[in-house]
Amino acid sequence: MKTYLSRFRFPDADAEWRFFAGLRRTCYDSYYPFQVLAPRGLHQLELEPVTILYGGNGSGKSTALNVMAEKLELERDAPFNKTGFFPDYLRLCSADDACPPKGSRIITSDDVFAWMLDLRSLNDGIDRKREELFGQYLDAKYADFKLESLEDYERLKTINAARRESQSRFVRGRLMDNVRTRSNGESAFLYFTRKITCDALYLLDEPENSLSPARQLELADFLLESARFYGCQFVIATHSPFLLAMRGARIYDLDADPPRPRPWTELENVRVYQQFFADHAGDFSHDE
C-alpha cells in the first residue's frame, strides 16, 4: 500500500501568536483558518494509506482537509471558504515526503452537489430543446413554403424531413438523450467511483453524505480496495461508523484533548450507536 504524504504539520499556538504579533492591522472579524486547529491542539498528522479524521461539528475536520489540499495544490471542483489569511497560514504549514501524483484531489460535499446540479441543468436544457423541436416540427410540417433562392435550402431540408418523418423520429434525430436520472445517493456514489481512479492521493470530506448505510458499506469496500490494489492514499473526514470501521485505518479523534489516534470502537458517536441498538434490542427480537 502506497503513501504519498507521510506527515503534515499545522502551526501551533506559538507560531500563530508570532504571526498575529507581526500584523500591522487588527481590524478583522475573522482570521480563518487561524485559531481553529491550534486551540484544539492539532499540530500534526502522521498519515497511513487510509487516515480518518473524526470529530463533532466544529472540530476542524474540514478546515484541516482544505488546508492540506491548498498546501499540496490538489485539484478540486467546487470553491470553498478561502479567506485572505489562507496564504499566510499555508506558509506556516509543512508536508513531509509529499509527492502527490497528478490527479490527486480533494472531494467535498459541495463537489458532489455541484456535479448533481450540473446533471440536472443539462437535462433541463435538453428538455427545453425538445419542446423547441416539437414546435419546429409542426411549423415545418404544415408550412406553406416555396423555394425562392439557395438561401432557403436549409429551410427546405427541414420541411422535407418533417413531412417525411414522424414527430418522434424528427426530434430524436436532432437531440441528445437525457443523462440517466439517479437518486442523490446513486449519483454521489457514481461521482466517487468516477473521480477516484488509481495511484493518487485523495482527501474526502464526509463522503457518506446522501449515501444509505448499504451504500456507505459499498463505498468503504471501494476505498479499501483502491488503497490495497490500486495505489491510492486517503485522508477522510467522517462521522460514519461504516467508514470508521475500515480495517487498518488510522483514526484521529479530534474531539480528544489533544487530538490523538484511537480505535473506532472507543469513539463517542460509535458508542451512541451501540447504546441505541442495545436499548432497542427487544424490538429486533420480534423479527425472529
Rank of each mutant, 00 (worst) to 15 (best):
K2F: 05
S6L: 03
A13Q: 15
E16A: 10
E16R: 02
W17M: 13
W17C: 03
W17Q: 15
F19T: 09
G22M: 11
L23P: 04
R24W: 08
Y32Q: 05
A38L: 06
L42M: 06
H43Q: 13
Q44D: 09
L45E: 01
E48K: 06
T51K: 00
I52Y: 02
L53F: 01
G58D: 06
G58E: 03
S59P: 10
S62R: 00
N66S: 07
N66A: 03
E70T: 10
E70L: 13
K71S: 05
K71C: 05
E73L: 07
E73R: 14
D77S: 08
F80V: 07
K82D: 02
K82L: 11
G84R: 10
G84W: 05
F85E: 09
F86S: 00
P87Q: 05
Y89R: 06
L90Q: 04
R91T: 14
D97W: 05
D97G: 07
P101K: 04
P101Y: 03
P101A: 08
P101M: 04
R105G: 01
R105T: 12
S109L: 03
S109Q: 07
D110I: 02
D110S: 14
D110T: 07
V112H: 03
F113S: 13
A114E: 10
D118T: 12
L119W: 02
D124V: 10
D127F: 09
D127H: 08
R130F: 11
E131M: 10
E131S: 12
E132V: 07
E132R: 13
L133E: 03
F134E: 15
F134I: 15
L138R: 13
A140Q: 06
A140V: 07
K141A: 13
A143Q: 13
L147M: 04
E148W: 00
S149R: 09
L150S: 09
E151Y: 09
Y153N: 05
E154R: 12
K157H: 06
I159Y: 00
N160Y: 08
A162L: 09
R163Y: 05
R164Q: 13
E165I: 06
S166L: 10
Q167R: 14
S168I: 10
R169L: 15
R169K: 14
V171C: 09
V171M: 05
R172Q: 14
R172C: 06
N184I: 00
N184Y: 11
A188E: 01
A188N: 02
F189I: 09
Y191M: 03
C198R: 14
Y202R: 04
L204T: 01
D205A: 01
S210K: 03
R215H: 10
F222P: 01
L223V: 11
L224R: 15
E225G: 08
Y230E: 13
Y230I: 02
Y230F: 15
C232E: 01
Q233I: 10
Q233P: 11
V235H: 00
I236Y: 00
F242I: 00
L244A: 09
L244E: 07
A245R: 12
R247D: 08
G248D: 02
G248M: 04
G248K: 04
D255V: 08
A256L: 08
D257W: 00
P259I: 03
R260T: 13
R260I: 08
P261C: 07
P261A: 04
R262D: 06
P263M: 07
E266H: 05
L267Y: 02
V270G: 07
R271M: 11
Y273G: 04
Q274N: 09
H280D: 06
G282I: 11
D287H: 12
E288A: 13
